[in-house]
């Protein structure tokens, strides 16, 4: 387990944001918005809490991290390169024939990826299986899952939510990246979800709401998750889609659109890269 300081984690997240913009620009495809909203949490997890061995990706007692919103793969690839599962050069293979960085995160292609994602609503159930497996083996490893807020419109999420509480899976830890935007529009226009924390409490989970871009709050939430052992817990993170790049922020157009040349230049300036 590595333990970076808050400022180191913030700097790691900044570097990852740069890579997210470069990756999507390079292939002129992909999902920058949701990658930028999730990235601070991913850096907090990989930099402070997850147990893993980049030199031994299949180490049995590693914590599992399941990116259920698998389209936000640039964010995960950037982190995997930061911590050494893949090289920074591998990031150039995003969506490219034969590349380890497939369009959606894929365990068959990329070391460090535990779950082959792509269809929304699946990762939490997979996480349940990982958590039950850890319990059966008597292992202290945890299963961390990240879903998007739009994703919880999928009915199967609630099958999983109910089952996790029923089985009292204290080793299952969920993050909801609440950036308020889904593919076609704002979530509130597509399908209002009303009181999301109340829904999870009603399903029997321990719930905490945070600012998903405040690294101190993220770290406190991760530490809080360790204290919840008798039931599953969820951190509902209020985030901004496209966070860190002004013209992408809270802009539904950048759910699944890449920056053009001029937009990349502006993004890199905003992210502190010398031009």
């Amino acid at each position: 387990m590595v333990s970076k300081t808050v400022s180191e984690l913030e700097e790691m997240a900044r570097r990852c944001r740069v890579e997210i913009c470069k990756m999507t620009h390079r292939i002129q495809a992909g999902h920058p918005g949701g990658s930028l909203s999730e990235i601070d949490i991913l850096c907090g997890l990989y930099g402070r809490r997850l147990r893993y061995r980049p030199e031994e990706p299949d180490w049995n007692d590693r914590d599992r991290f399941i990116l259920s919103k698998g389209h936000a793969s640039p964010g995960m690839y950037a982190v995997l390169a930061e911590v050494g599962f893949i090289s920074h050069d591998d990031l150039k293979s995003y969506r490219v024939k034969g590349g380890v960085c497939q369009g959606h995160v894929d365990s068959k292609w990329c070391p460090g990826v535990d779950f082959s994602a792509g269809s929304l609503g699946m990762g939490l159930s997979f996480g349940l299986g990982c958590a039950i497996a850890a319990r059966l083996e008597g292992s202290s490893r945890n299963a961390y899952v990240m879903v998007g807020d739009g994703e919880i419109q999928e009915g199967s999420i609630w099958e999983a939510a109910m089952a996790a509480a029923h089985h009292e899976l204290g080793n299952l830890k969920l993050f909801i990246d609440c950036n308020g935007i889904q593919n076609d529009d704002f979530c509130d226009a597509q399908m209002r979800m009303f009181d999301i924390p109340a829904k999870w409490r009603a399903f029997g989970w321990s719930v905490r709401v945070i600012d998903g871009h405040d690294m101190n709050e993220i770290i406190q939430a991760i530490e809080w998750m360790d204290t919840v052992q008798d039931k599953p817990c969820v951190v509902i993170a209020n985030t901004v889609k496209g966070k860190g790049v002004s013209f992408m922020e809270n802009n539904p157009a950048f759910h699944g659109a890449a920056p053009n040349d001029a937009q990349l230049r502006q993004a890199l300036i905003e992210l502190g890269v010398e031009q």
Partner: peptide
């Protein structure tokens, strides 16, 4: 739906 993916998680864990 949940059952099958719990199975997938278990299978991925051996």
């Amino acid at each position: 739906q949940n059952m099958l993916l719990i199975g997938a998680g278990l299978a991925s864990s051996g």
